[in-house]
Design a protein around this nucleic acid. Structure first.
Lengths: 182, 182
DNA sequence: CAAAATCTTAACAATTTCTTAACCATTTTC
DNA sequence: GAAAATGGTTAAGAAATTGTTAAGATTTTG
């Protein structure tokens, strides 16, 4: 699936298009604003999409100027939350080269999976990420991956971080998932 | 002007209100999402507001559920500690992002089951929740669970709350279930 | 194709949570 | 008021989850 391999600034999702159900796409996407275009004027549809993760919902027919303005709103707010800023936290800095982490300014090389996990945790910093969500995320790169496997990745990440700092960064929330410690 | 002295998570701006012109307010505000409510359906108005800095624009009449959903979208993207997600009542505050409970601002860690029970009770605050309903809820996570077990969970919850406040929060309704005390 | 890096699986220990069971208190029923 | 049913508390053992390690499988790289 393209969504999983490429990077996007914004997704315009037409609910009338054939193929995947819109709501499923919305739930799969993370940290990319989605504007839903739809002929459905049902309020329930709107509410569902918005609560599932869509950033905006425009009912057809719409004025093209309005669409452009709403696109600008999304891009504007996305730039404010500069992604790169969010990837710094205390002694950690995740570099965008996809596999390097700085711990107290020491280079630590991460595997693709470790990078993906840590990035997700840092992006959502105070929040808990469920094990299932992390698994979904990892499955983009590698298919078979169960909780056991995830545990090993987390363990490896912790060890790599611990080599350079005494602070604990990855906290387990029993029965739920993981989060970055405050 | 109030806007300058107080802090806000979100501004709902009704363009029909007398006083300042909406667009001027929008331009004055920084870093706070603004949802504009208006009866004006002119596309130019929408576009102007959005380009001036508004985050969303809703045309009257609108469905209240849609408004709430759009409010949540704004709070979600702006501040990840979503106010709407946190259940507050008197000395209690259930933090959804951490799966923890604050009692008089003291962190108390809850188990998955305790969290689920308290969340259900707080969500339906003045109402009684039947024992069966609570059991159904818990069974999502843990299979075998009878009334005896539920009693123990409630007891543990009460103890954890009692450690930090003298107020009673969980009331038993004899033969029916439990509720949050008024 | 071979070597290296990465991932999954499996096993085990450690930890946390849940249920069971016993006992006592309270409320209802007769 | 006594018996029966329901609720509250506690502790111990059962069950589930997590952490760690190492080995074998898979993928990537040169």
């Amino acid at each position: 699936m393209l969504l999983e391999k490429e990077k996007y600034d914004l997704i315009l999702l037409d609910l009338m298009l054939p193929g995947l159900k819109g709501e499923e796409i919305i739930k799969k996407v993370n940290n990319v604003p989605i504007i839903v275009l739809s002929a459905k004027i049902s309020s329930d549809d709107k509410v569902n999409c918005l609560l599932s993760g869509a950033s905006d919902y425009i009912t057809k027919p719409f004025d093209s100027k309005e669409l452009l303005a709403r696109i600008e709103v999304q891009l504007r707010s996305n730039n404010k939350n500069n992604v790169l800023d969010n990837l710094k936290y205390k002694d950690l800095e995740l570099l965008s080269d996809k596999h390097t982490l700085l711990v107290c300014n020491n280079k630590v090389s991460l595997t693709k999976t470790e990078y993906a996990i840590l990035k997700q945790l840092l992006l959502n910093k105070p929040q808990v990420i469920s094990k299932n969500k992390l698994l979904d995320l990892i499955s983009i790169d590698t298919e078979d991956c169960d909780e056991n496997s995830l545990r090993v990745h987390i363990s490896n990440l912790r060890r790599k971080i611990k080599d350079y700092t005494d602070n604990e960064y990855i906290e387990s929330i029993w029965g739920i998932g993981f989060k970055i410690k405050d």
